[in-house]
């Protein structure tokens, strides 16, 4: 399971801005905006349903006041 969490677009992300500015100093152009978030990799049993995963994301991994998130099933075993 993958859960990606990002600060909401309307909430100022000074960390993302600092990263974007650093890219300019690296000589990279064409990067308009950076948002910095979190990437969670969860190993879960098949018994855990989508509703439960959504509950985990909404109530713990992300804070709905300031963040948005995407949950997707993916085989994370090597």
């Amino acid at each position: 399971m993958i859960v990606d969490v990002l600060p909401k677009a309307e909430i100022l992300d000074p960390q993302g801005q600092a990263v974007a500015r650093a890219m300019g100093r690296l000589g990279v152009s064409g990067v308009a905006d950076v948002r910095q978030g979190k990437h969670f990799v969860l190993e879960v049993d098949d018994s855990v349903d989508d509703a439960e995963l959504e509950r985990i994301a909404e109530s713990l991994l992300a804070n709905p006041v300031m963040e948005e998130w995407v949950v997707r099933r993916e085989n994370t075993q090597p």
């Binding site: 100022l12 992300d13 804070n63 006041v65």
Partner: peptide, 17 residues
């Protein structure tokens, strides 16, 4: 208290970092 739902809103990184 905000994370526990007793108060609304959230506290995020200072604008000046």
């Amino acid at each position: 208290l905000c994370e526990a739902g007793l108060l609304p809103g959230a506290l995020v990184r200072n604008t000046g970092l």
